[in-house]
Lab assay of single mutants.
Amino acid sequence: MGFKLLSKLLVYLTASIMAIASPLAFSVDSSGEYPTVSEIPVGEVRLYQIADGVWSHIATQSFDGAVYPSNGLIVRDGDELLLIDTAWGAKNTAALLAEIEKQIGLPVTRAVSTHFHDDRVGGVDVLRAAGVATYASPSTRRLAEVEGNEIPTHSLEGLSSSGDAVRFGPVELFYPGAAHSTDNLIVYVPSASVLYGGCAIYELSRTSAGNVADADLAEWPTSIERIQQHYPEAQFVIPGHGLPGGLDLLKHTTNVVKAHTNRSVVE
C-alpha cells in the first residue's frame, strides 16, 4: 500500500471513529477524501466538511520552486461564519470567499490569524475590503508590521502568557507558548472536538522541520505538551499544512522538532 493511500485511509478511519463516538456532533463529509496538494491548482481553494458547521479550507501556493498546501478553518456561528487564517495570499483568499459563498452561503463576518507569517495573514486586506472584521493577538499584529505583512485590524486580548485561553464565538483560542513562531495560536472547536494546530503542528508525513527561522526550538516541545494537557479530548487535529489526523500529530511534531534540534547540535 502506497504512503499517500495509507495517509488518506488514516484520515478516513479517524473521521469514521469520530462519527461513531459522537453521532450528534459529527456529520463528516462523505463526498470524498481530504484534498491534497496535487489536486488543488494554485489560485483555487477546496472546502472539506469535518463536522456539522465545521470545515477546513485548503489552498496551495508556490514557494521556492515548489507547491505547498495550506489549511485553515471555518466555523459556523449562528447565521454567520468565523474564518481562521487566510488562504495564503490575496488571490487565494478572494477564491476562498467565493467558494464559501458557493458552498455554504453564509457571510464571513470575523477572521482570526493564528500567527504573523504570510500563509496566515496574506489576504487580510481582501477580507477587510469584503467587510470582514480581522483579528490577531497584539504580538501577531506587531510582528506582521515588522515583517511588512498585512496586519489584522483588531487585537485579541488575554493571550499574552503561555497557557492563556479565551473564548471567541464558537471557538476557544489558546496560546501554548512559542513553537513554530513566538505568537502562534491554537484554535479548538469544543462542539466538535476539532483542534486546529496551525503551523505549530505537523502532518504525519512530514519528517523535516522546514521553516524554523522564527521558531523557538527549545520551547516548542513544552508548548505541545500544554496543548495535549489542555485538549486531551480532541479527536480531529488539523495541521497548518497537509493531512489531518488525531492527537498523534502532536507527538510526531515533537519528535521531528527534537530530531532537528539534535542534528543542529551535532553539526
Rank of each mutant, 00 (worst) to 15 (best):
Y68S: 09
Y135I: 02
E150D: 12
S56K: 08
L73Q: 01
S137I: 04
L106C: 06
I224M: 05
H57G: 02
E203Q: 06
L217Q: 06
K8T: 15
G163M: 04
Y12P: 05
V28R: 09
L81K: 01
S181I: 00
R110V: 10
E44H: 12
G78T: 08
R76C: 06
W55D: 00
K258R: 13
R226Q: 08
G197P: 04
T253F: 02
V126R: 06
R206M: 15
E99F: 08
Q235W: 08
A130P: 06
R76Q: 11
K91G: 14
E225C: 04
A215P: 04
L243I: 15
I84N: 04
C199A: 00
S264K: 13
H260D: 11
V187M: 05
V37W: 14
T222A: 13
R226W: 07
S56L: 15
T253D: 00
L9F: 10
S161P: 06
K91H: 11
Y231C: 06
A51E: 09
W88I: 00
A111T: 07
G122T: 07
V212M: 09
Y231F: 11
S160H: 12
H252K: 02
I238L: 07
L159I: 10
Y196F: 14
V11L: 08
V121P: 03
V187Q: 01
P170A: 09
N149R: 11
K258T: 13
V28E: 10
W88M: 03
L24F: 14
L82N: 04
E101Q: 14
L24P: 13
L97F: 03
L10V: 14
R46V: 10
S137Y: 02
Y34K: 08
Q103E: 14
H260M: 06
I104Q: 01
S155G: 11
N149G: 11
P41V: 11
F63D: 14
P69I: 15
T36M: 12
G43H: 09
H241P: 04
S113R: 03
S162F: 11
T182P: 14
N211D: 13
V11W: 07
T254G: 10
Y34H: 09
N262V: 11
S264Y: 09
V45R: 01
V189H: 05
M1W: 04
L83S: 02
V187Y: 03
D125H: 10
A165I: 12
A165Y: 14
L24G: 10
V189F: 04
A129L: 10
I186H: 03
K91Q: 15
V45K: 01
D125S: 11
L127P: 05
G131M: 06
T93R: 01
L47G: 03
G242F: 04
Y188R: 00
A200R: 01
N211F: 07
T182C: 05
V187S: 00
Q49V: 11
V126W: 08
V11K: 08
A215Q: 06
F26S: 13
Y48W: 14
V75C: 03
Y135F: 11
F26D: 15
L83W: 04
H260W: 07
D118V: 06
S205Q: 08
R141T: 05
P138Q: 09
V212F: 06
D164C: 03
T60W: 11
G242K: 04
Y202Q: 11
T153E: 15
L185G: 02
L159E: 01
E157I: 11
A129N: 15
G177I: 03
Y135T: 00
D248K: 08
Y135D: 03
H241G: 00
A21L: 13
A213N: 11
R142E: 14
K258S: 13
L97G: 01
D216Y: 05
V112M: 07
I20P: 07
G53H: 09
Y68A: 15
G246T: 12
G32T: 09
S22T: 12
D214T: 06
T86L: 01
H154P: 04
N211R: 07
Y202W: 06
V212R: 05
A234L: 05
H252E: 00
